[in-house]
């Protein structure tokens, strides 16, 4: 077994806005082991980005609040109790982040080389010359041609895909053990997306880095992740290995997501499946299951109480009332997947 690297337990995060307290994340737990890729999937507003920011301590008071009951441990250390100095040592060195939009995540008035070297010099006691050498290597690693020349250029001289490579190089600069990629390909062209994903996958395997991949695109997940957590309305509704999630979804939301992906094997004129309705307002999260109002299998109980997790295997669990024995007798099915009609 691989060594466990990150464990998030009962993470709760709220934002205080003028309209009230927005409960962005409501009790999220997951684990990531070394060298493993975990994908967090969900639509916008489901709390996935907020979760990932919390792992790097980027939730900023006074508006953002990580609730005291939450716990995040990295290599056995509770990071939520970190001092400022410990945070700074951890960020960039142990854990690094790749942001969604490469057009805005680089400082427009600083040369690319300096932006990468800055990270290296911060965490390593080496000379500028060595740092420069390392920067060139990094740029080669992320397949940027003519790295020597590129060092002295400004971000505006790079295309979107190239900038994302630079951002990846910054993240890799200190060989972090954990890398969080927040929708790293969403803002890019489809052809570039594939290249960037390939690059991330190669790096992950080469460097044995753990990766948390945040995305709303199941296609991205399929090729990259080992495990998937599906988030909805601030909670993880289903968790499992890629095969489990793709082949045996056990939550109506996961099932609906999978059906919403257009597929070539479908008959030509088959209508595209959609999920009706919109996610709930997190200022007043619903009392019962967050997905109840959009769920076609919704029962009375779903509107009244939040379902607990049902363990389906060592790696697979889902939070849905359909797994309750009484539901199965009421509707007469053995396995929940029968209900969802997956082939």
């Amino acid at each position: 077994m691989t060594k466990q690297l990150l464990e998030v337990n009962n993470l709760r995060i709220s934002f205080h806005t003028y309209a009230g307290e927005v409960q962005a994340v409501r009790g999220v737990s997951f684990k990531v082991s070394e060298g493993e890729c975990m994908a967090i999937v969900g639509e916008s507003g489901s709390g996935k980005t907020v979760t990932s920011k919390a792992v790097l301590g980027l939730i900023e008071p006074p508006s953002g609040e990580v609730k005291a009951t939450s716990s995040i441990t990295f290599a056995g250390q509770e990071i939520l109790n970190f001092s400022d100095r410990q945070w700074r040592n951890y960020r960039g060195k142990d854990a690094a982040m790749i942001f969604q939009d490469p057009m805005t995540s680089l400082n427009p008035t600083m040369k690319i080389g300096r932006q990468i070297m800055e990270n290296i010099l911060l965490h390593n006691k080496i000379s500028r010359q060595e740092a420069r050498q390392r920067t060139v290597e990094l740029l080669q690693m992320v397949n940027i041609p003519n790295p020597e020349e590129r060092l002295t250029q400004y971000p505006y001289e790079f295309s979107g895909g190239m900038r994302q490579r630079v951002v990846i190089a910054i993240a890799l600069a200190c060989k972090p053990r954990l890398m969080i990629a927040d929708e790293p390909t969403t803002a890019l062209d489809v052809t570039i997306q594939a290249q960037i994903l390939q690059l991330l996958r190669n790096i992950q395997q080469q460097e044995h880095t753990a990766v948390i991949m945040i995305t709303h695109d199941l296609g991205v997940v399929a090729g990259m992740a080992d495990f998937i957590s599906v988030m909805y309305a601030g909670r993880i509704v289903e968790q499992g290995s890629v095969i489990e999630i793709f082949n045996h979804p056990q939550h109506p939301y996961t099932s609906a997501l999978l059906k919403a992906v257009p597929s070539l094997s479908q008959p030509n004129k088959a209508p595209l499946q959609i999920i009706p309705g919109t996610p709930p307002d997190m200022i007043a999260p619903p009392q019962g299951c967050g997905f109840a109002s959009r769920c076609q299998y919704c029962m009375k109980i779903c509107q009244q109480r939040d379902p607990a997790y049902t363990r389906l295997s060592d790696t697979h669990q889902a939070a849905c009332w359909l797994h309750e024995a009484q539901a199965r007798t009421a509707f007469g099915y053995q396995d929940v997947s029968e209900v969802f009609n997956h082939a």
Partner: peptide, 23 residues
Amino acid sequence: STSQTIAVPELSADQFVRVGVDE
């Protein structure tokens, strides 16, 4: 594996009635 579900006492059968998507 599904059988070892959450054992909450006050669940009654009438709570397991389908409501459906209420737009």
